[in-house]
């Protein structure tokens, strides 16, 4: 194990730590606009995790689509609806403690189960180089039917969003 390997490992752990910290900020901060900014940091951290899994195409898609498109939409919605300056409004309901306890319990058991499992690793998949060309070929051959269905779902959802969001005449 050389120095570069250890450095890569530390980098991935640091990215995960930043991501989880920002995720906690998303669900706890009082100002909803600050939550949106923290969510951008989470999405960038997830893109870093994709790069560490050698899925560079998805890292780029994540940044373009989530950070570029969806977060713009979310920030627009925040600007149009909430009274950001108002600090007196309670942002959380009173179920915080029991939710935290139950999810903490879930995580203890889940982490224990995951760390005890011996995964059936596939060396061919670990060595494979999945680039945009491979994904495109798979979309156009094996997965062409789901690809068409998802296109229809997307266009229906976008038309529905426009109809719901437009102002009344």
């Amino acid at each position: 194990m050389d120095a570069l390997h250890i450095l890569a490992k530390l980098g991935i752990f640091a990215a995960m730590l930043v991501t989880l910290t920002a995720a906690v900020m998303v669900v706890t901060l009082r100002n909803i606009f600050h939550c949106a900014l923290a969510l951008i940091l989470v999405l960038l951290g997830v893109a870093a995790a994709y790069i560490s899994l050698k899925a560079e195409f998805f890292a780029v898609i994540q940044i373009l689509l989530y950070v570029g498109a969806i977060m713009t939409l979310v920030i627009f919605a925040i600007m149009l609806t909430s009274r950001i300056g108002d600090k007196t409004i309670l942002q959380n309901n009173r179920q915080g403690l029991i939710s935290f306890a139950l999810l903490g319990l879930f995580n203890v058991f889940f982490t224990g189960a995951v760390l005890k499992t011996s995964w059936n690793l596939n060396p061919a998949a670990m060595a494979a180089n999945v680039d945009a060309g491979v994904l495109g070929a798979a979309f156009m051959n094996e997965y062409v039917f789901p690809f068409e269905i998802i296109s229809v779902v997307l266009i229906v959802a976008l038309v529905g969003a426009i109809i719901l969001g437009r102002a009344d005449q």
């Binding site: 989880l20 909803i32 309901n93 179920q95 915080g96 939710s99 935290f100």
Partner: peptide, 24 residues
């Protein structure tokens, strides 16, 4: 990675359960 995504899932579920703001 699985533990990391489990933690991220729990934080998200906590947010769904306790947030009052629909955008949150």
């Amino acid at each position: 990675y699985v533990v990391f995504s489990g933690l991220l899932f729990s934080i998200g579920l906590y947010g769904v359960l306790v947030r009052r703001n629909v955008i949150g």
